[in-house]
Design a protein around this nucleic acid. Sequence first.
DNA 1: ATTCCAAAGTTAATTATATCACAAACAAGT
DNA 2: ACTTGTTTGTGATATAATTAACTTTGGAAT
Lengths: 210, 210
Amino acid sequence: MKTLKIPEATIIRLSVYSRFLYTADKRGIITTSSGDIAEGVGVSPAQVRKDFAYFGEFGTRGVGYNVKDLHRHILKILGLSNIWYVALVGVGNLGLALTSYKGFRERGFHICAIFDSDQGKIGTKIGEVAVQSIDELEKGVRECHAQIGIIAVPAEFAQQVADRLIASGVKAILNFAPVVLNVPPEIELRNVDLAVHLEVLTFNLGMQKA
Amino acid sequence: MKTLKIPEATIIRLSVYSRFLYTADKRGIITTSSGDIAEGVGVSPAQVRKDFAYFGEFGTRGVGYNVKDLHRHILKILGLSNIWYVALVGVGNLGLALTSYKGFRERGFHICAIFDSDQGKIGTKIGEVAVQSIDELEKGVRECHAQIGIIAVPAEFAQQVADRLIASGVKAILNFAPVVLNVPPEIELRNVDLAVHLEVLTFNLGMQKA
DNA sequence: ATTCCAAAGTTAATTATATCACAAACAAGT
DNA sequence: ACTTGTTTGTGATATAATTAACTTTGGAAT
């Protein structure tokens, strides 16, 4: 086990493997193999083993992997063995969708503060959490010790929201606004642009015909 | 201009460039350069030129690119110069968020049919489009000639919805359910798993400390 | 016209990622 | 104990993508 730079593709696959292991475990499966996992998630067995190899040896040769063990290891690697507090900014349809997204809660992400600028929304409860005014962003983020911020506001406000989140102690940002955000290098940033995915599809459809 | 295999990363970047060009054009900018674009979207100028080079020569040396021209070219490449009809299955929060996502309409994606299994939702209008019963999926998809299907239903129903979409003539699927779908090779499939993005963030946060 | 400059287009080098193929190791059966 | 079958872990190989360096070309200024 060497501490090399890990390809991001590997991290993404680990996340997918963990989903596979979660369901395998729920179905009562005790042991699995790189072949099983590979088939289940649509990659090659060698790829699966290589991905694991970045982090150690989790299986026994000739046998395979213990599902529970492996799953626990991967969750640990992904940083999911403890709870993460998340601040959500923007309660449009997308923001709402995110609050109710089962996958987040299941995997240890706890939305602990929600902000919006719409007076009509402030004070309303979404699940357990009351929507706060965007004016109280700094205070609210600090109070619940959010380490992660989710930006689900219109593009024109995204940068200032990002700045304020960072100023309030957030260390990582998931941005759904279709803009390039400027953040200090120590801040982890990921962008999700839903339209991009559709565009990759249409590009590929075009290719087929040609 | 050779017809090689195009990296998917290139397609994704083209999509991002097009967003940059869209705003540049709106601001009245006539001419731009690989350097401008690179800075605007956070990649290297060489990368920008390389990406364009897969598809032809769009600029003039010593000058740069005409914003409108280049934008038009990229939209053409991405298959966005005509309208795409999209069928949406599943009107949970995520489904709702997608229907109201400005980016889709703006870029020529037209949600022409919406399906759900919840009796309470059937018949209600979302924007212009009435929600239909999932029982009428085949009929509804055919009637509006949807080429793309978006799956926003719980994981356990995703595969059967995919099968039915494909049987109804859909050629590409954008899947938001966290499962690996089995589709024929000629069907374009992309999966979006929102939790994955958060997990990449938490992994990276973990790395920082270590 | 000629020269100079700036930025595109292109080729080559580097780096990153994925695949392959095999040796090591464990379990079970003889 | 020994053999056999199986699956891991890994070093070597192949492929892909990015970066860097170079060449070309159009436009502007003299």
